[in-house]
Design a protein around this nucleic acid. Sequence first.
DNA 1: CTGAAAGCGCTTACAG
DNA 2: CTGAAAGCGCTTACAG
Lengths: 349, 349
Amino acid sequence: VPADGQPAIAVDPRITQSKHRPTLVDVAQSAKVAPSTASRALQDSPMISAATKRRVRAAARRLGYEPNRIARSLRTRSANFVGIVVPDIGVGFYSRVVKGAGNVLESAGYQMLVMNTERQPSREKAALQTLLEHRVDGILLATSGATEVEPRVPIVFFDNVVPSAGVANVAYANRDGIALLVDHLVGHGHSRIAYIGGPPASTSGSERLEAFRAVLDRHGLPPEDDYVRLGDAVWSSQSGGAAMRELLGLAHRPTAVVTASDTLALGAMQACRQADLRLPRDMALVSFDDPFFGDLLDPPITALARKDREIGELAASLILHALECGSSGAPTEVRLPVELVVRKSCGCG
Amino acid sequence: VPADGQPAIAVDPRITQSKHRPTLVDVAQSAKVAPSTASRALQDSPMISAATKRRVRAAARRLGYEPNRIARSLRTRSANFVGIVVPDIGVGFYSRVVKGAGNVLESAGYQMLVMNTERQPSREKAALQTLLEHRVDGILLATSGATEVEPRVPIVFFDNVVPSAGVANVAYANRDGIALLVDHLVGHGHSRIAYIGGPPASTSGSERLEAFRAVLDRHGLPPEDDYVRLGDAVWSSQSGGAAMRELLGLAHRPTAVVTASDTLALGAMQACRQADLRLPRDMALVSFDDPFFGDLLDPPITALARKDREIGELAASLILHALECGSSGAPTEVRLPVELVVRKSCGCG
DNA sequence: CTGAAAGCGCTTACAG
DNA sequence: CTGAAAGCGCTTACAG
């Protein structure tokens, strides 16, 4: 125990504690400058002489100094964090979005806080709350419910668009995509075209469904309620398979099917295989999202090219823009153009 | 501008600033208690009377108070963060590990900081540094190089094992897996069995390769250098395809191939298709990692069942254990048991 | 060019 | 049961 009045430096317990991580004060003492000078030197401030900078840097290296970002964030009132919340990080689409966003954010000096909600509204709410408590500078949100968020920080919605909320929205051009798919099937001469989609709770669900009906109408094909089947909330392959089985059980069977996602398509293909149907001979099938290695499936599937990573990159760029320039005016809405990859499941080749 | 000596409360500029986020001091003032009392009340400390707690909570709600975790972390000297660094979050394996780890960590009250390195050693080093600066409590690391890390915090290695480092290692039972695969092909009567693997720089690369040679030896099959081909550093399907083409070009062609990953297998299958070979008639193929919807491939592939999420859950549990109980003694090594999923590419069915 | 001082928003001994 | 005070590790006006 140090006697009162004794200089603190000589007996600083921090030096003796083996587990102590050096602080800026330690560096400053070691370099014989004030903490403020050490701080500026490590920031390479123009206020500091070259010689001093060298001394401070040497001291920092010698001590193995690692700046404490927590303290820095508290002081500067900016964590340099952007949160991203996704329904299921295990799903390829979301993990690729996260990847794209992470790269853009990192090169701008931001850290990304990934929150996985498992599609539970309660977890989404909690995730948002946690992000706010961590004082993130902005949020990238693929909401799986209609969470009404009071934007205390800029928000960019992706995948599931929330019109006129946040600073921006990013999603695929759903209507164009469905049009491409249906047009192609019509080009093959199909007129009994069915649709296996996701529930309309999400943007992708509602827009794709709506577009399917609209495009059929444009072609003068009568709407057939039996031909529209919706899968479960997670767009599972199981529900895609179930939908296909229902379609196959119909008296007046469709000759072609559009699925609104890769998982739905995969489930539908399994169902066809189990029913001993040959694609595309007995049934044509095209899908919105191209499955991973869709060219290796039996048959290779005709689908829309993936640009998942770009969605993440775009969303990140938009939040960065809002952080740097301030969010002004109405939210931007960005739609990623789609592109048809023609393979064999449609009847081509 | 407030006159000196005037009570601060009446003119507190924070109240007038519209963008000000309420602090604990605001809550305390509103509830007419000391900040320390407010802090304890919100922590539901037994020291505080029920009536006071109620008042404080009401004030917090009224003001829309969100505790500042940055300040909390600085004060308690624990960020309640665990970092996880992966070579490529866009790859299914890693995203599922992240998912598993995240769920375990979250239910233990930790936040997860995901770092994506794109397999660049420099980015991995930077990621580790960043994590340390954020004062994470522990790290989950799938290193893509032999990063020698001085563990200032507990580390659990996964995927790529670093023996006798960190507090624990988690990986698939690589040797058992390869044995299962080769044994099955031998059971089909194959004796000319080739191997398409990843480079031995990683645990999965070296252990699987080594096991392949050992199992061949166990079966009394002569080692054939031409039959062993290694893909590129990312185990790309392109390199798997190239390897398969080399194999097909051999004078004394193999009759069966073991691939060390799903991507390698997929590339190899593409190469076979391009060469107009029929699987499994012209060539049997089995794979270590089961591709996504491997049952829908042409032909359905025989492979080892995936337990990626479990690897993440295990790694997270191990780091949690180390954080709570302290890391004692030699690092634990956990090997996830493997399981053969028999389909048709091997020649069955 | 350098330093002393204040303060970011919490928590936690310590005292009552 | 409650409060006053110190301090986590930084940064940044302010003064010299």
